[in-house]
Amino acid sequence: MHFFLEPGFFSNAPVRTALLLGAVVAAVSAVVGVITVVRSQSFAGHALTDVATAGGSGAYYLGVGALWGFLGGSLAGAGAMELIGVQRVRRRDLATGIVLGAATGLSALFLYLDTTVKATTGATQQILFGSIFSVSSSTIPYVAIFGGLVVLMMAIMRRPLLLTSLSSEIASSQGVRVRMVGVLFMFCLAVSVGLSSIAIGSILSTALLIGPAATALRVARSIAAATFLAIGLGIISTWLGILLAYDSFYWDPSSQGLPVSFFIVAICFVFYVFSGIALSRRRAQETRRPVATDSALSAEGR
């Protein structure tokens, strides 16, 4: 026990903040992530972290609160993607890419200005990779409020969103406002990604958005079950990662420990790989399932 739970783990204030913040962000990311994966919008989900980062580094230079920089950047990026055409599947990849490319250029400029003009060191690494241990606890209320808003919106529009994600043609023939649902979802994605980018850094933002959701979608029986499973997996990965990172300071006294993001990503990835094994097992069972008729024409997904 002593080796696993190093002394002082729970009495350490940054650790407590990290545990709380990590759980909230992991849960919100999981809720949004499930639909992100179903809609095949992982690229947008990841690109928005980089766009949020550009906003964050801009805010840093201008002296505006970083939270607003990240959120503003992310929302502006989502708006630009929407304008260029993220709602059309064929143009989605490009729209995301163009916005990401431009945002990266802006990041380059702001980070340069941050380090040279403001003579701050560590900005590049801090803003790009973030660290869950360095977030001030004053961020927590904002994260909770915005996160709660996103989860509420997702719950309210879950049915239109689901049908739109399966087939926008069928959805619009049924009277679903496909475009509006798409825009609202991009809003949720942008807020969720902006929050997680500032709270836990851009690497973890993508990892927690996609990893647990993709894992859960493979093994769960319904979207609702997948969502709850993803929340659970996200929180477990986050807490276990924080614990291991904290412990890693003690593994080798001369080293500086390993970053949290490394552990959390590794755990998410292990879950995903295991779910792949579970999936191939289930596929094998399903092929043995007696099929009613026309089994000759099995639907090839891709």
Binding site: V37, V38, L166, E169, I170, L217, R218, G301
Partner: peptide, 16 residues
């Protein structure tokens, strides 16, 4: 009611 020609129902989406 509408049944489109091509609907790609993804095997990875857990929906009955």
């Amino acid at each position: 009611g509408y049944v489109p020609q091509k609907v790609l129902l993804d095997p990875d989406v857990p929906m009955r």
